[in-house]
Design a protein around this nucleic acid. Sequence first.
DNA 1: GCGCCGATTGGCT
DNA 2: GCCAATCGGCGCC
Length: 211
Amino acid sequence: MKQSRRAATLPVAFFRRPAETVAAELLGKVVVSTAGGELAAGRIVETEAYLGYDDPASHGYLHRRNARNAALFGPPGIWYVYLSYGMHWCSNLVCQRAGLASAVLLRALEPVDGLATMRRRRGSVPDHELCSGPGKLCQALGITRDLDGVAMAGGPVMVLQGEPLAPGSFSATPRIGITKAADWPLRFHLVGSPWTSRKEKGGRFRRSPAP
DNA sequence: GCGCCGATTGGCT
DNA sequence: GCCAATCGGCGCC
């Protein structure tokens, strides 16, 4: 029986590639969570790639492995979830192959389903701030350490095929919130999306300097 | 609208 | 003791 393209879960092979490639291609895909017994879903509009043991910003830099980041060294297609600044959960999808410590951080979503649940979980914030950051989207989707090390396919939080993106609809910019190798252009976002963690700068969104 | 700062946990020096 | 892949509140243009 033929499955609808929209409803198909991404195959593990999708993640068996460099994090940079996966990060770009995750844009437009839909994350569906049933964590906590409630449905919440969003379209991915912003990601960040962490390349592996030779990326100074990766938690697995120089193969540093500990109790917190063990899932990062696991097989492609599993979740790596960690606590940031002692307060916020951040969700990654492991890429390429086990042992490389390569992953993609989900940074922002456009809410598409379960808005009432997201609003309740997030408190009173405007809708464009429900999932506009890695910690915020985890709170909105009910993601916690429970998801760490769990397979994406068939698990409580899955990524589905979205509509194909038009060529040139995304852009690569420097990574956010880190001090090492932050300038590497490994943050990907849908150009012009109002759902990202940062407002668009430059181009038509900013007045040109006086001549 | 922008920038600074504190909250709070865990792993490392 | 220090720092971190963050967030939200507050003060000041």
